[in-house]
Amino acid sequence: MNIRIPAFIGIIAWMAVSCADTKSPESAAELPLTGTWKLAYSKMIKNGDTTDTYPVKGQEMIKIFNGSHFAFFQHDVSKGSDSSTAIFGSGAGTYILSGNKYEEHLQYCSFRSWEDKHFTFTLTLQHDTLIQRGIEKIDSLNVNHEIIEAYIRLR
């Protein structure tokens, strides 16, 4: 009897630990990217200065992933009716995800000088929030900054 009780307690303890809801971020590979994500906030860090770049009043942005491609769309919610706030931007391309290393190849972009560029980011998933962080560097445009973007999965 004494041999079975410790084994039983060990199994119960293992089950409790295995089923516990941890609050630590998960690697990107543990949850699929496939689906639609809404931008919650973004920041740009340049020369040690951090600028909040989103949210922008009156704008929305989404990013969509399938197994090999991504696309993003940003627009004003007034549907262009206010010429001072009217905006539409989009981009798309391919990506490779390896663990939490996410590499984008931007093939199409409404900002045409960004087309055919590669960017490497780190992704972190925590519950329904995706954090994308990395360097955007394009020498020909004098672009060199870090971005941090947080997206919420849309159901």
Rank of each mutant, 00 (worst) to 15 (best):
N2W: 12
R4K: 10
A7D: 10
F8E: 12
G10Q: 00
A13M: 12
W14T: 15
S18A: 15
C19R: 15
A20Y: 02
T22P: 00
K23L: 10
S24C: 04
S27E: 07
E30P: 01
E30A: 13
P32C: 02
P32I: 01
W37F: 05
L39E: 07
S42R: 13
K43F: 10
D49Y: 02
D49I: 06
T50G: 00
D52F: 06
T53C: 03
V56T: 13
E60Y: 04
M61C: 15
K63F: 02
F72V: 02
F72A: 07
H75Y: 06
D76Q: 06
V77T: 09
G80L: 14
S81D: 10
D82F: 04
D82N: 15
T85S: 13
T85Y: 05
A86C: 10
S90V: 06
G91Q: 04
Y102P: 08
E103C: 00
E103T: 03
E104Y: 06
H105L: 12
L106H: 01
F111P: 05
W114V: 08
E115W: 01
D116T: 06
H118E: 06
L123N: 07
Q126Y: 00
L130A: 12
Q132N: 10
E136M: 04
E136R: 08
D139P: 02
D139M: 09
L141W: 03
V143P: 00
I148E: 12
I148V: 11
I152N: 03
